Simulated scan of single mutants.
Amino acid sequence: MSVRSLVNTVMRAVRVTEFGGPKVLKVDKNVPVPKSSNDQILIKVHAAGINPVDTYIRSGTYAVKPTLPYTPGKDVAGVVEEVGSNVSNLKKGDRVYSMAATSGGYAEYCTAASSDTKLLHSNLTYEEGAGIGVPYYTAYRALVIIGGAKAGDTVLVHGASGAVGLACAQIAHFRGLRVLGTAGSQAGLDLIARNGCDAVFCHREEGYATKIMEATENVGPQIIIEMLANVNLERDLTMIAKKGRIVVVGNRGSTEITPRLAMQKECIVTGMLLFNATQGEMDEIDAAVAGGMRDGWIKPHIGKVYSLEEAPNAHEDIINNKGTQGRLIFKVSS
């Protein structure tokens, strides 16, 4: 299909016309195909990733609210359909992934910032490509840049079976760390054991923290990557090694901690938000991810695939699941 014919056509896209629960997500079959600006590209979307932040934005509780109506989603994988006049790093027909869908990724086509759109290696499918962006970039920044991970360290990925957790485990394993991971189901434990975790623990089991400490000879992990701080932060403070680092990646509420635990450990507790990354950090992550795709150690696990019409179910599942297992995605086109 030519660029000119695309401009005057319509597409299917998930639209939000009011903030609220998952049911506000509705497919509209007559949304105009967006037009890329000079610095953007137009992507024919094959798959789109689903992130927890998508649900916060949809509910209207996120700090930044988009103008209604809007199409959710930032993570996509597909084929470049059109390039802006200032774009030199990509061309029509390139297989790409992006976490910068500017017109919304839950759609048949989306515009994206060319600077934040990268080539998708042939080792990965489009579905896997939709699992790279936010999960792997978040994991790398949390573990390596903020967490200061180095070969020989022990890292505990607290909630390792989700998309970011599995990315952390794969990156840590590749970089020579000893990886401990927790999950909430036997299927989740089996999954993280196959994806880089040297020892696995069920965080629904009473006394699991004691087992983690025994596995570290009661020293504790040097790094903890925390996916649900409002539930686990106090426990993390009891486990972290002296002068260790707890990096909070996920949180869904307030919590109460005992500051003396931090005093005793002289540990650092820090939050991490991917979009605070500097350009230099993003360049470092780009290079690491490109190498991981090429060499085969980056391999997103797709937990469940949805159609665009199943968007309400997808948003319900990503928040209220009984045991996350990998990345949730929309399959948009074949």
Rank of each mutant, 00 (worst) to 15 (best):
G220V: 09
I212H: 07
N218S: 11
T216Y: 04
Q170D: 13
A193G: 13
I223N: 01
I192W: 04
N218M: 13
C197D: 10
A169M: 13
T210R: 10
E205H: 03
G159V: 04
I225G: 10
R178N: 14
A163G: 00
R194G: 13
E226A: 03
R175M: 11
R204A: 06
E214I: 04
G165F: 00
G165H: 01
A172H: 10
D198E: 11
A172T: 12
P221T: 02
A169Y: 00
R194F: 01
V157Q: 03
I212N: 06
A183F: 13
L191V: 07
S185Q: 03
R204S: 04
H158N: 15
C202H: 01
L191T: 05
D198Y: 01
V157H: 02
A183R: 03
N195E: 08
I225W: 12
A187C: 07
V200K: 10
C202N: 15
H203I: 05
A215S: 15
E214Y: 11
H173K: 15
L166R: 08
V200L: 08
R175C: 04
Q186M: 09
G176D: 11
V157L: 09
G165R: 01
R194P: 05
S161N: 00
P221V: 08
L166V: 14
A215H: 09
G207C: 00
I224V: 06
G188D: 05
I212P: 11
R204H: 11
A193K: 14
R178V: 11
N195Q: 08
E206D: 15
V164Q: 05
L180P: 13
G159Y: 10
C168H: 10
A160W: 02
L180T: 12
M213H: 05
R175D: 14
H203R: 02
L189Q: 09
H203D: 08
L177W: 11
A215N: 10
G159T: 01
V164H: 04
V219Y: 10
G207N: 01
N195P: 07
V155Y: 02
L180D: 06
A187T: 12
N218P: 02
L156S: 04
Y208Q: 01
V179A: 07
L189Y: 06
E217I: 07
A163T: 04
V200N: 01
S185L: 03
R194C: 09
F201Q: 04
A160P: 00
H203N: 14
A183M: 11
A183D: 07
L189P: 08
E217S: 14
A172Y: 12
H173V: 07
F174W: 10
G188K: 08
A193R: 13
A199N: 09
G165M: 00
E217Q: 14
M213L: 15
I223T: 04
V157Y: 00
G188H: 04
F174D: 15
F201D: 09
L180E: 09
